[in-house]
Computed example of a mutant assay.
Amino acid sequence: MKKMLVVLLVLGCGLVGTPANASTSAWTASWGTAPTQQWDAQPQTTVRNVVHLSVGGNVVRVRLSNLFGKAPLVVDRATVAVSANGTADIVAGTLRTLRVHGKARLTIPAGKEVVSDPVPLRVGDEATLLVSTYVADAPGEGTIHPFAAQRSFVATGDHAGDATGGAFGATTDFWWYVTAVDVLGPRVRGAVVAFGDSITDGVGSSWDVNRRYPDVLARRLLAAGKRMGVANEGIGGNKVLKDPLPGQEWQGPGALTRFDRDALGRAGVHTVILLEGVNDLINAPATDPAALIAAYGELKSRAHAKGVKLICATVLPYKGFGAWTPQAETARQAVNAAVRAGACDDLVDFDAVMRDPADPEQVNPAYVQGDKLHPNDAGYVLMANAIDLADL
C-alpha cells in the first residue's frame, strides 16, 4: 500500500469541542491526530488502525474523516475493539460496530468528517484500540496522517470484524481515516491538545511504543492523579503562517488555517500547548519574527473565545540542521523572547531545557537525533517533564 447520549454528523470541516468548563460526564478527547492530505486509496482493503488512548472511559466514539477527499467516501464496515497487547488480535468481547445515525455503512461527503454514535465499551487508561475500516470501492484519495510512529495493519477484503489478526499480513505507517477517539467516563477533567509540527508529532521517537512527548505527558498526568485526555495534533513540516505548496500536502494546512479544527475542535479541550515556528524559520530564513509573534496572538484570541487556555512553547534550537542560518537564529531568539515575555497565557521553555550548555544555539547532543533537530526518546521525556502540570 502506498504507503453518542448524542448522535452527531459533522456538517463542516471540524467539530466544535465540548466547552472547557464542561462536567466530568462530557466527551473528552483521549486520542487524536491531525489529517494532512489525500493519498492513493486502496479498494477492497481493511485498515486496522492502532491507536493508543491517554485516559479511559465507559463509552467511546470515533471520528472518521474524508476531509481531503474529492469524492464521497463509503466505509462499508467500521469497528472498534481493544487490542491484545498491541497486536491485530482483539481482546475477546470487545469488538463493536461503529454506526452513524444507526447505520453501519457510512458515507462521508468530500471535505467532511463524521462522528460515530456512542459505543458502550469499557476501556482503561492507556488502552490500545483497533479502529478497523473496510472500504470496498475507494475513491481516488484517502485522508491520512502520514507519520504515525506506529505501524497499523492492512488486509485485503473485509476483515473489520475479524477477532484475530491472521488476515492482516501487511502494515502501514499511516493512520487512515480515523482522526479522534473520545471517551465518556467518571472523573475525567477535560483534554490537553499538543499542537505543533514534527517535534510534537514525535519524529525521532521509537516506533510502536508511544514515546512522543504528549504520550509521556499523558502518563505524567495519570501518575499525578489528574485524569485528563491528551490529543497529539502535531504534523511534520507544519508551518504557522503558510499552507503547504502543491506537492507538499503532507505538511498539512498551516496553524492559522487548522487551529480551530485540530485544536479548539477537540472534545473537552481545556488547554492547548503550542509548539510551532521552526518550519517557518527553516523554510524562509528571512521570516520576520513579528509575524510569528502576531500569529501567536491571533491563536491566543481564538482560544480565549472558546474558553481555552493557550500555553506557548519556546522554539527549540537547531544549529547543525542543514537549513540553519544565523539570520534564522536571530529570529528564533526574538520569538522566544516574546514567548517568555508573556505572548501567551503561560509558557513552557523547551529551549531552556533542551539546549546544549556549551553551545545554546544547538540541542544538547544527549537529547537529539543525528539531524540536530528532532529529539530522541530521552529528549521527549525531558520535554514532557518540563511542563508544569499545575498549568494544565
Score class of each variant (00 low, 15 high):
Leu9Glu: 15
Leu9Val: 12
Leu11Ile: 02
Gly12Tyr: 06
Leu15Asn: 01
Pro19Ile: 00
Ala20Cys: 06
Asn21Arg: 13
Ala22Glu: 07
Ala26Val: 02
Trp31Gly: 00
Ala34Met: 03
Pro43Thr: 08
Thr45Tyr: 00
Arg48Ser: 10
Asn49Asp: 15
Val51Glu: 06
His52Ile: 02
Val55Leu: 05
Ser65Cys: 04
Leu67Cys: 00
Leu67Asn: 02
Lys70Pro: 00
Val82Arg: 06
Asn85Ala: 13
Thr87Ser: 15
Thr94Cys: 04
Arg99Pro: 01
Arg99Gln: 08
Val100Ala: 03
His101Asn: 15
Lys103Trp: 01
Ala104Ile: 01
Leu106Val: 15
Thr107Ser: 14
Glu113Leu: 15
Asp117His: 11
Val119Ala: 06
Arg122Trp: 01
Thr128Met: 13
Leu130His: 05
Tyr134Thr: 03
Tyr134Ile: 07
Ala138Gln: 09
Pro146Ser: 13
Ala149Gly: 01
Arg151Asp: 10
Ser152Trp: 12
Phe153Leu: 12
Gly165Val: 11
Gly165Gln: 06
Gly166Asn: 12
Phe168Thr: 04
Thr172Phe: 10
Tyr177Trp: 13
Thr179Arg: 02
Leu184Arg: 14
Gly185Lys: 07
Gly196Ala: 04
Thr200Val: 14
Val203Met: 06
Ser206Ile: 00
Arg211Trp: 02
Ala218Phe: 08
Ala224Lys: 09
Arg227Phe: 06
Ile235Asp: 09
Asn238Met: 10
Val240His: 01
Asp243His: 02
Pro246Tyr: 05
Gly247Asn: 11
Gln248Met: 13
Glu249Leu: 03
Gly254Thr: 07
Phe259Pro: 03
Phe259Met: 05
Asp260Tyr: 05
Asp262Met: 05
Ala263Met: 07
Gly268Tyr: 14
Leu274Gly: 11
Leu275Arg: 02
Val278Ala: 13
Ile282Gly: 13
Ala284Gln: 12
Tyr296Phe: 14
Ser301Asn: 10
Lys306Arg: 15
Ala313Phe: 11
Pro317Gly: 01
Gly320Tyr: 02
Trp324Val: 02
Trp324Asp: 06
Glu329Asn: 13
Gln333Lys: 14
Asn336Ala: 07
Gly342Ser: 04
Leu347Glu: 02
Asp349Arg: 11
Asp351His: 13
Val353Thr: 03
Met354Ser: 00
Pro357Tyr: 12
Gln362Ser: 15
Val363His: 00
Ala366Ser: 14
Gly370Asn: 14
Leu392Glu: 11
Leu392Asn: 09
